[in-house]
């Protein structure tokens, strides 16, 4: 299950809407081992495409180093699908490599954006419940 603050959900959805019809992507970092998303990091989609996303490699290095220095992990990696449902595509599954990360997908194909979360391990996709909270207890 992904437990995430409403403020972060709103930021992810706002980013997805702002970049529509291109796919938007980013990270929510949190203390390593906590499984608690805290720090919203909007990333550049180096592909600027409606059907593909890729973190800009230099920006990724900078952000990953920053997380390392702060003893954080990428608790959530999110991206949007802009014409299809919020379910991982074959490409998403092929690239997914973080066993402890919640892969969040937002679909902006409909007026009310879909917000769903998955674990992707060794090519197997498992959808999980998303619990949106006002604040972490």
């Amino acid at each position: 299950m992904l437990t995430i603050a409403r403020e972060l959900v709103d930021k992810i959805v706002a980013h997805a809407r702002a970049d529509h019809p291109d796919e938007a992507c980013g990270v929510v970092a949190g203390p390593a081992g906590s499984d608690r998303p805290e720090r919203f990091i909007q990333m550049e989609n180096a592909e600027r495409s409606p059907t593909f996303y890729r973190f800009d490699s230099r920006e990724q290095l900078k952000v990953w180093r920053e997380m390392d220095d702060r003893d954080e992990a990428p608790v959530v990696i999110y991206h949007s699908h802009t014409a299809t449902e919020a379910y991982p595509s074959r490409t998403d599954v092929t690239y997914a490599s973080e066993p402890d990360t919640h892969y969040v997908l937002v679909s902006t194909a409909t007026d009310e954006p879909e917000f769903r979360s998955y674990r992707i391990l060794d090519g197997v996709v498992t959808e999980e419940e998303v619990k949106i909270v006002e604040a972490y207890g």
Binding site: E23, E47, T51, S57, Q60, T82, T91
Partner: peptide, 12 residues
């Protein structure tokens, strides 16, 4: 030398 998994994907 730093190795990172590329983060990518998309609808297709």
């Amino acid at each position: 030398v730093t190795v990172l998994p590329a983060v990518a994907g998309g609808a297709r």
